[in-house]
Design a binder for these strands. Structure first.
Length: 244
DNA sequence: TCGGTGGCCCTTA
DNA sequence: ATAAGGGCCACCG
């Protein structure tokens, strides 16, 4: 990529062009530490466009984005903390070139708070495509900016964390790091419990919802389905929104 | 209980 | 343009 003729041509063009033109065409890349090891991150003047793990960054970037690349000495502000803590803050993302469906999926995934998880089917319901559950999985598998858009917080309905672009073990590590009680949710799943309710409030939540975690043991009730909970008189939490 | 399986639907080759 | 296949899910035996 260092000897890219297209890149050289564009650089030459830019020399005579208005300030900033080149930056509108090219992307910059930089290596960054993260909770799952070293990453290569590409960004444009619109924000972070691509987060890559492992080898083959340049080839994959070229295939997916077809933009020239130049190395950068300095990360965009906020990127370092976003990667370390999982809190994105005001960091800008460049999500151009994605389909509406993909953008909808990623936006919904981005709404899952740190320390919590939601099923793939929840995303599907939230974006108004309740049957596109599997397509949600593929879209998340193509998330160009993992960690920054927390697709690792989307897990399978059966309690298994499910797959991840950077590997299932990385997903588990991230979730544990964020305070998700994976052992606890697995135990619940084994007992066929996928929702938790409080008999004092009459509200039913996803188990990792911060509201569900505060239910005291004597008032906690578990349900296998939302329908079961509704039948017992519980209404869905307005924060974690277990129903569409 | 668990593995198989059909359904679903978006993307890519 | 069409067919295959994917970070899934619910149901069946």
């Amino acid at each position: 990529m260092t000897q890219d003729p297209l890149l050289a041509g564009l650089a030459a063009l830019a020399a005579d062009a208005p300030e900033g033109l080149y930056d509108r065409i090219a992307a910059r890349w930089i290596r960054m530490p993260s909770r799952v090891g070293e990453l290569t991150v590409a960004f444009t003047d619109h924000g972070v466009a691509y987060v890559h793990h492992g080898d083959g960054f340049a080839a994959t970037f070229r295939k997916r984005f077809g933009r020239p690349l130049v190395e950068s000495g300095r990360p965009p502000s906020g990127l370092m903390t976003a990667l370390r803590t999982g809190r994105v803050g005001g960091l800008r993302l460049d999500l151009r070139g994605l389909s509406d469906f993909q953008r909808d999926v990623l936006t919904a995934a981005g709404s899952i708070p740190r320390g919590e998880v939601r099923p793939y089917s929840w995303i599907a319901a939230r974006i108004g495509r309740p049957r596109a559950v599997r397509a949600v999985g593929t879209a998340l598998g193509h998330n160009p900016v993992p960690l920054l858009i927390p697709c690792h917080r989307v897990t399978r309905a059966d309690g298994d964390p499910g797959g991840y672009v950077f590997g299932a073990q990385a997903k588990e590590r991230l979730l544990l790091d964020e305070g998700v009680d994976l052992a606890g949710t697995r135990e619940l799943a084994e007992a066929n419990v996928f929702y938790l309710a409080s008999d004092t409030t009459g509200i039913v939540c996803f188990p990792t919802c911060h509201n569900a975690r505060r239910i005291t043991a004597r008032h906690r009730r578990g349900f296998r389905t939302l329908a079961d909970a509704a039948k017992a008189g519980y209404r869905p939490c307005r924060v974690c929104r277990p129903a569409a």
